[in-house]
Simulated scan of single mutants.
Amino acid sequence: MSDTLDLFADPIDLTTALVDVRSVSGEEEEIADLVERSLRGQAPHLEITRSGNSVLARTRLGRGRRVVLAGHLDTVPINSNFPSRRDGDVLHGCGTVDMKGGDAVMLAIAALSAEARHDLTFVFYDCEEIEAERNGLTRIQRELPEWLLGDLAIVCEPSNGTVEAGCQGTMRVEVRTTGRRAHTARAWMGANAIHGMGEALRRLEAYVPRQPEIDGCRYHEGLQAVKISGGVAGNVVPDEAVLTVNHRFAPDRSVEEAERHLREVFDGFDVTVTDFAGGALPGLSAPAAQELVAAAGGTPVAKLGWTDVARFAALGMPAVNFGPGDPTLAHTQEEHLPVRQVTECFAVLQRFLLD
């Protein structure tokens, strides 16, 4: 492997070079060093700093707006899909979609940003694919919060080259029923907690999720049972059952409103919130966001999932997802990327940020 990346190469070649560097979550030092060396050597106009295995760079051109571009350097564990393999116009390999194609586009823009139309900040961060407390953005927000501020944030996660606005929130709850143990030969002497879960499951089956439209983007909410547990032994009436439910809610609902809604749905049951993350409103009315949409030349869509755009939205910024690759291929052994999407995403951001 070369000591540096050629930031002025075709972004497709840059993608290949990044994919061929192992960077499983928690093991990003090699790729972070490579990105830092390359930026310092080929983009002297940028102010550059390091936070753990995150690399941050920004212009100071005195422009009226600042756009933050963010992309994580880590991948999920390699699954017989390393190094990269090119098959015609398709690049195969771990991280092609999630999200080294997006990182390559960011690096190519960074190299050309000396005369950008907006001031730009580039955030290449670590540990996105694992628990939130280890996510590089968590550390950066705590130690270098000013580096995350701007008028628009673009998270270059895979979006099939479409502007995906905002993101849904997510919440997990445990619905618990209790009963009384007894021998199954004398079952009438007990109360079966698993049987008591039937009503909660019927409510889920009958549930009709909302589909609100926000800034012209339609969000599809969801409420799904994802796990059920209970039982003591093959001859014992169980005295407890636990149903785990995941709720994906549109960003016009706060975390508090989502919790109230779930407690209404499961009224009469013992409900415990175990995990949550708020969503992000699209913010497409912001001038910088409108410019990006115009440069992309398509119709923005709702992000049906949670991404780090929510972190930027919580800082008061409009935030979108925009990057090459099909997100449904992320984390799969067959992860692959049509290389034309890298070229197209680079062209859109070049029009928006540089021309």
Rank of each mutant, 00 (worst) to 15 (best):
L284T: 01
F276D: 02
V273S: 11
P300R: 12
E257Q: 14
Q290N: 03
P282D: 08
T299E: 12
E257P: 00
T299D: 14
E256Y: 03
G305Q: 02
A296R: 05
V271H: 09
V265I: 14
L292G: 07
F269D: 14
W306C: 02
T272P: 06
A288P: 00
G298M: 11
S285F: 02
D270K: 05
A289I: 07
E259V: 00
A296V: 12
G297A: 07
R260P: 05
G298F: 05
L292N: 13
V293M: 11
P287V: 05
A295W: 04
A286K: 04
H261E: 15
A258L: 03
S285N: 13
E257A: 06
V301A: 13
R263S: 05
E256R: 11
H261Y: 15
H261C: 00
D270I: 04
T299Y: 06
V273N: 15
G297L: 07
A295C: 10
A302G: 04
H261N: 00
Q290F: 03
A289Q: 02
A296G: 05
D270A: 13
G305N: 02
R260E: 13
A286H: 15
V293A: 11
P300F: 08
L292T: 06
Q290I: 07
S285W: 04
G278R: 03
L281M: 13
E259W: 01
A296Q: 12
G305Y: 02
E264V: 14
T299Q: 13
L304S: 00
D275Y: 13
S285Q: 14
L262P: 03
A302T: 01
E259I: 00
D267T: 09
F266T: 01
E291W: 06
D270L: 10
G278K: 03
G297F: 08
V265K: 04
T274R: 06
G278Y: 01
S285C: 08
A258D: 01
H261I: 00
R263E: 08
E257G: 00
G298R: 15
F266D: 03
P300D: 09
L304Y: 01
E291M: 05
D275K: 04
V271L: 09
L284C: 03
V301L: 09
L292W: 07
G268W: 12
F269K: 11
A294E: 11
P287T: 05
A286F: 04
D270T: 11
F266Y: 10
E259F: 00
V271C: 11
A295P: 09
G297C: 08
Q290V: 07
A288I: 02
E264D: 12
P300I: 09
P282G: 08
P300Q: 14
A289D: 03
K303H: 07
L292Q: 10
F276S: 14
A258R: 01
G298P: 10
V293E: 08
A286C: 08
T272D: 09
E264F: 07
A277K: 05
A295E: 08
